[in-house]
Write a protein that binds this DNA or RNA. Structure first.
Length: 405
RNA sequence: GGGUCGGUGGCAGAGUGGUCAAAUGCACCUGACUGUAAAUCAGGCGGCGAAAGCCUACGGGAGUUCAAAUCUCUCCCGGCCCA
């Protein structure tokens, strides 16, 4: 039997660090954790995209904290819901994924989550797939399940209210999403579910079902979203989302492009840096004489370190300092063989340094294409023997070494 | 089923016969500056082309017209109201 650590300080931290809300309340959850009982908790991830992102990592990080105390963590792959695709927006009816796609993604998901969560060792996180039970549901089961909720409860949800107001469609099966998610809770008979605050509604549906089906309390812990003081989120639509399958260099750079105001919260949510240390960082940032960049670099380093290890983080940081801060060429540049006489224009497209020849032209015209740090100004310029060994640079961070043949 | 309004670029959203490759915002790209791939500012942002220009594109199809995102018909999809 796995031993559970009862350390009040640690427990207090876990139920407050990065936490937005706890249902039914923090005190009751604390009592449960202090009782020495080993609880079972989970968070679900729909493998609809090919990579987890930093927002998912926040929940995974929280799971890992419970794992460290010895609790049973389930890393749930939402392959059932993932195959259907989330119809949040009518314009974005997703292409349905095959079982193979989903399983392929899922494989990576576990790997991606591995930076935070331990899938091996004494208390490994358990991977489960929700198709295991959801595939078997009959129409009759579905009716039974849905009878536990009212339409009014469903449309209370923010997102539905918004759409009602905007007169945008709400598909009937969207009401079923919270149901399936809640059903997961009941089937796995969990004590706690964690997730982003935007998942609150779905998670609470699970509370209801856990009560109905197993006559048991399920705690729900919602996490703060990664946003700055003004509520500006970091995410896909903001263009600064970090995906866990990105290269360490890209990951580092993306974090550096986050708004300064998000630094402290990001430390809290995405890293395992101690509360005391974060406190110091917050104070450092309060002093206007200090440069927030320094702490943002530390943050970027930490994020890469957790996900890819110390070495990768160091390399990513070196790369950043070298190419971005000092505007130098990185150490290892991809060499590409080119035939003499080929126009640079075509080369850019072939090497995917530009999306199309139109894009390549624009980049050249705007001075974004440099050969050994000299801007190219002739659209028709061809590669000549003298270009052998020269460094071609597009924008701030796309380099190729030319090898003439 | 009836009535009515609508479907526009990656997203949001203008445009209602020519001046529309389609305003504006977000996202994205390039440059300047910087503390950085933040912020700010400038430029750009369908494809091909050195350019002139050509091609493709405003839900699908068919028409009207010298000319259609804009008008007509039809099909598909959605919102609202009524039943």
């Amino acid at each position: 039997m796995q031993k559970v650590i009862i350390d009040e300080k640690k427990i207090d931290e876990i139920i407050s660090r990065g936490v937005e809300q706890v249902f039914p309340d923090k005190e009751t959850l604390k009592k449960k954790l202090m009782s020495g009982e080993r609880i079972r908790l989970y968070c679900g991830f729909d493998p609809s995209a090919n990579s987890l992102h930093i927002g998912n990592a926040i929940a995974i990080n929280k799971l890992s904290q419970f794992q460290e105390l010895g609790h049973e963590v389930i890393f749930l792959i939402g392959d059932f819901t993932g195959m259907i695709g989330d119809p949040t927006d009518k314009a974005a009816t997703r292409a349905k994924l095959t079982r193979e796609d989903v399983l392929e993604n899922a494989k990576d998901y576990q790997k991606q989550a591995g930076g935070y969560l331990n899938f091996e060792g004494e208390n490994p996180a358990i991977v489960r797939y929700n198709s295991e039970w959801n595939d078997k549901l009959t129409f009759r089961d579905l009716i039974e399940l849905s009878s536990n909720f009212t339409v009014q409860q469903m449309i209370q949800r923010d997102m539905f209210q918004q759409r009602l107001k905007e007169e945008k469609p709400i598909h009937l099966h969207e009401f079923l999403y919270p149901l399936t998610q809640g059903y997961d809770s009941a089937v796995m008979d969990v004590d706690l579910e964690v997730g982003g605050n935007d998942q609150m509604f779905n998670m609470l549906a699970g509370r209801t079902l856990q009560k109905v089906i197993n006559n048991k309390e399920k705690f729900v812990l919602t996490l703060k979203l990664l946003a700055d003081d003004n509520g500006k989120k970091m995410g896909k639509s903001e263009g600064n989302a970090v995906f866990l399958n990105q290269s360490p260099e890209d990951m580092y750079g993306k974090v550096m492009s986050w708004d300064d105001g998000v630094i402290v919260r990001a430390f809290e949510l995405c890293t395992k840096v101690s509360i005391e240390e974060i406190q110091k960082i917050a104070e450092f940032l309060k002093d206007e004489k200090n440069n927030p960049r320094d702490k943002k670099m530390q943050l970027a380093f930490e994020v890469v370190r957790i996900n890819r290890g110390e070495e990768a983080a160091q390399k990513a940081q070196d790369y950043f300092i070298r190419t971005i801060q000092n505007k130098e060429a990185p150490e290892d540049i991809k060499s590409v063989q080119v035939a003499i006489g080929k126009r640079f224009l075509e080369f850019l497209v072939e090497e995917k340094m530009a999306e199309s020849s139109g894009d390549a032209k624009r980049k050249i015209k705007q001075g974004g294409v440099r050969l050994d740090d000299v801007a190219l100004d002739d659209l028709q310029k061809e590669i000549s023997p003298e270009d052998d060994g020269k460094i071609l640079k597009v924008g701030k961070r796309d380099f190729r070494k030319i090898v003439v043949n």
